[in-house]
Amino acid sequence: MKNAHIVARFDEDLSKIKTRILEMGKLVISQIKDASAALERLDASEVDRLIATDRRINGMNKDIHNRAERLIALRQPVALDLRQAILPINMAGELERIGDHAKSTAKLARKLSDAGAGEQVMRMVQEMSVLLQTMLAQALIAYSHSDIKLAAEVREADKEVDRLNKAVFAAALQAIRQSPAEAEALVRLILLARNFERGGDHVVNMARHVHQIVTGEDLKASS
């Protein structure tokens, strides 16, 4: 922010909310990464730790909510300040849901025993995971630097996630036809890809919130 508030505590409170979102986002990225790695190795040993971390993420969501509520009640922000107080509540909610998807991903490592015929599908799912992590990292940078151009790039990148989701569906369907015995595992991978696709949508929402904080324009309302 170019100009500081006359009341320095106001700036501190706003910046704490921002810091918490960035910390939460970083943790969610590492969750997606670790959950995807556990799934790829079909290693269930990390699952409990990842579930515990998800509880921490939920707690951070609550903390951000409380901080924003307190700031609104005590400082009665307007204009840019109001958006900086309200939209992080939504952003934390999006992060919390991405965190839930990561948890489901990790849990799947317990259920799948061998990728087998689904190897190609698994590769695409992993590709989606990497894309999602990159998009989320960029959304956080866009938020941190009030960079609406980067936020627009994040929204654009989601198209690739959607494309991969469709490709996973097609490939899994074909694999099921060839190896009906592996149908269960392949259906689980289809559902997992849909989780990542949903994750992409949550990141897109975050990028929209960044745009709204900076410009005041609600892209969802105008789309």
Binding site: M1, N3, A4, H5, I6, V7, F10, P77, V78, A79, L80, D81
Partner: peptide
């Protein structure tokens, strides 16, 4: 914006 948000 600066005035209504109490910024310098």
């Amino acid at each position: 914006q600066n005035y209504i948000t109490g910024r310098t």
